[in-house]
Every structure is written in C-alpha cells, then in structure tokens.
Design a protein around this nucleic acid. Structure first.
Length: 378
RNA sequence: GGACGGGUGGGUGAGUGGCUAAAACCAGCAGACUGUAAAUCUGCCGCUCCUUGCGGGCUACGAAGGUUCGAAUCCUUCCCCGUCCA
C-alpha cells in the first residue's frame, strides 16, 4: 500500500471531501489529528485511539529526538512499532518549537540551535537534520523545518522568516529526495509549510515558492498564534486558493470546535490541535452545548452526562458529578476520561462535517455549528 | 502534683513591638489554554461600605486584664494541648 490523495467531492461552499491513503491507514478527510507529541496522546492508550476512530495522529521530531532519540526508535523498528500504533503518523518538524521555545533557541540560516528544555544540552536542528530524524522515526508524513514566528509581526521580520522557510524547505526537500528509504526506513511523504505571518502577499509568495518544490501536500503554518480568527481564515484562504486541488492541505495547530468548519470551508483537509487534550486535562470539556468547566461548583451534584448529545463511552457511563469529583480529587482518571470525551468530540465534528459535505448540506451544518456552540452555558 | 514546649485566618504553618487583614503551601471560588517545556498557568480568597481606590469602617492571632503613642508579638492570671518527671 502506498501514498495517495483523492479528492472525492467539493462542496459549493468550499468544503472538500477526500481520502488520504498511507501505508498505515485510509484517512477520510477533512480529518482531525490528535496530538501525541512524545509518542503518546496524553491520557489515551492506543486502544482508546482505535476505539475513537483516529486514523492519524501527530508526533514531534524535536521531542522524540531529545528523548528517547530517533536512533533508538529506528533501532526498535520505527515509531509505529515502538509505540504500537498501526494507524498513520504525521511528525511535526520542530518548527513550532522555534516559536514556543523562543527563550531557549537561536536561529541562523544554517538552522536552529536549541538548548534542551530537559537537560540544557545544546542541539543544532537543521532542515536536513529534521528530515533525517523523521526518516528514522518512519512517520508517514514528515514536515519540513520552518520558522514559525509570533503574530502580529513587523513586515521585515515576516519577510525574513518567509525567506528562511523557503530556503530551508529547498534543503529539506533535497535531503529527503536523496535519502528517503536509504537506511531501510519506511516510505514517507514530505509536506511543505507556507509561512508569511498576516501579510496576504507574503502568504501568496510563500505558497508560490513552495509549489516549485513539488511537495505531495502543503501545510499552512504560523497561524492561530494570537491573531483574530478572521485573520487566520483570511490567510488560510489566500493560500488554499493557490494550492493544487489534488493535494492535501493541512492547517497546522487549529482550532476551537466552532472554528473547524470555517477552515474546512476554506479548503482545508487536515488539522491538528492540542486543545482537546490539553483542555481536557485542565477540566475544560467540549460539548455540543458549549464548553463545560467541569470543576465548577454548579456540577457538584449534576447527574447528567458531560454532553447529553454525545455517544462516547464516557458520556454513556459517567456523570458530571463524578467527573467533577475526580478532578477535585486530582485523580488521574479525570484526565483520562475528559480526554477521551474531548477527542471523541473533535473526531465526531469531523465525521459530521464529512457527512454534511457528502449529503450536500455542509453550509447549513457549518452555520449551525457556530449557533449551537455559542448558545451553550459557557 | 511538678518541669518544659505550644495554642495564629477552613487546614498545615511563618511571624517575637509599628512596614501585619497577617508569609508560604493546601483546601475553596473563578478564569485561561489553538503544529504540547502545560495533570499547567493566572486571579480572588475575614466582614462590610462606597465616589471601586496602592479608598473608608469594623472584627481578628486560646480567654480576660495590663504595659505602650502603638501588641499576634512584652507582663499577669486563667483555660486548653503535647512531651517528660513523680
């Protein structure tokens, strides 16, 4: 089984129904990818992920390189085997850590010099190195190393980051094409990442430059890092308008439940976000009626499920009062159950979106998603 | 019966004359979280008033008295608790 992407249907409103195939799974798109940075989706076992219907998850180059190291993982048969995950894996490149670990790194044209957040040791992550690590990990989809900057950013900063991102993408592409499967590594796709901050012309320029490199898929990066949602959408729209129809588009790091359909409408096929998992650990439950901050005193004796319209195993079995108690008591099960529900909720939204596109009522669904969500308690 | 040590806000526990409505932590209440340095972080946390301000008033460090301009802090008596000795 090899790689492919089929575009099955495009909704008049803009949503795309597709099928992404990797050697490990067939992924119906639009798809949501739970984030499993350190080779685990925090709070979920691989069994649980399978039950929830996740077909692809995210892992992180930078984190797995530092611990336990890509070489060890290669030796142990690759990331899928190591973590016993039979679905697909997309690995982020470490580009986001350029942004999130800004206090611990220095950027040069050569690459990014990180001081490890674990032990302070110094590491140089270059576009080539990031590609090498991901080949060793054997993920299905590798991301090129990019420079993700904070927004709003001055134009000259955005231009410099864009220029560097393009150069790095060229180097990453060259390295990848020259070294893929050389060490018996698993076959892999490599995606480019469009940058350009919040400047429409820079976004277009970035896309054009990456199209030359002929990636099998394209990501839009550097968004949802502080700018208003409308701006995120505007930037994503600029980019998707230029990308080839027959290749997958991945909007990195988004989003809130009520925003997901907006991105799909703009022609996005793949998304990932830590929100469902992180918020779950922090007692924030996403429901069809809005956010439920389950630690609130109002739920102390609430016998209802987390979400009355949810069919997940947690909602079928446990009460809000019980979840609130588990959080109050600091029990690890609280995080596990909440994460299970939230991930189910996200995957279910995607399921509904695909169904809506398929049956031709996507636009209606998208507007209802906003309305329903915003009418809730929180 | 005697000798020490100790009684502080819901809890643990700092504080030995003014900078103390009283550290810190916990509990409690509320909020944040978008390619995960996050089971994390932030705010509030005696009562009360208003013109919500590094604002006013009241109450508070076992109890009652006292010293002092000023006391959780010093003195006296009493009541509790712990350890040890008879």
């Amino acid at each position: 089984m090899s790689f492919s992407f089929e575009l099955l249907k495009t909704d008049p409103a803009g949503g795309r129904l597709g099928r992404l195939t990797t050697p490990h799974s067939v992924i119906e798109t639009p798809a949501f990818m739970p984030v499993g940075t350190a080779a685990t989706v925090k709070g979920l076992t691989q069994d649980a992920l399978e039950t929830l219907g996740a077909r692809i998850i995210l892992a992180n180059t930078y984190h797995l390189y530092l611990r336990p190291s890509h070489e060890l993982i290669r030796k142990l048969g690759g990331l899928h085997s190591f973590m016993s995950w039979n679905g697909s894996i997309l690995t982020d490149s470490g580009g986001y850590q350029v942004f999130s670990l800004s206090a611990l790194r220095k950027i040069t044209d050569e690459g990014v010099r990180f001081r490890s957040h674990l032990d302070g040791s110094e590491h140089l992550l270059t576009p080539e190195k990031a590609a090498e690590i991901q080949l060793a990990l054997g993920s299905d989809i590798a991301m090129v190393l990019d420079e993700c900057i904070e927004t709003p950013a001055p134009r000259n900063i955005a231009e410099a980051a864009l220029k560097r991102t393009t150069h790095w993408a060229q180097r990453a592409r060259n390295y990848f094409l020259a070294n893929a499967q050389k060490n018996g590594d698993l076959p892999q796709w490599q995606f480019g990442i469009v940058q350009g901050a919040t400047f429409p012309d820079l976004r277009r320029e970035s896309a054009h430059q990456l199209l030359v490199l002929d990636f099998p898929g394209y990501a839009v990066g550097g968004l949802a890092v502080g700018e208003p949602h409308e701006v995120t959408c505007e930037m994503a729209a600029e980019v998707t308008a230029l990308l080839p129809q027959n290749r997958p588009r991945y909007l990195m790091g988004v989003g809130r439940p009520e925003q997901i359909a907006d991105y799909v409408r703009l022609g996005i096929d793949m998304m990932d976000c830590v929100l469902p998992t992180r918020a779950a650990r922090h007692a924030c439950i996403y429901t069809s009626e809005g956010r439920v901050l389950i630690k609130n005193a109002r739920y102390v004796a609430d016998q209802g499920p987390l979400d009355p319209n949810c069919s997940c195993s947690v909602c079928k079995r446990y009460t809000r009062a019980y979840l609130r108690h588990l959080f109050a008591a600091g029990e690890i099960t609280a995080a596990i159950l909440a994460t299970h529900h939230n991930v189910h909720f996200y995957l279910d939204i995607m399921r509904q979106i695909r169904e809506a596109i398929s049956f031709g009522h996507f636009e209606k669904f998208a507007s209802e998603l906003h309305a329903r969500y915003n009418s809730g308690p929180a």
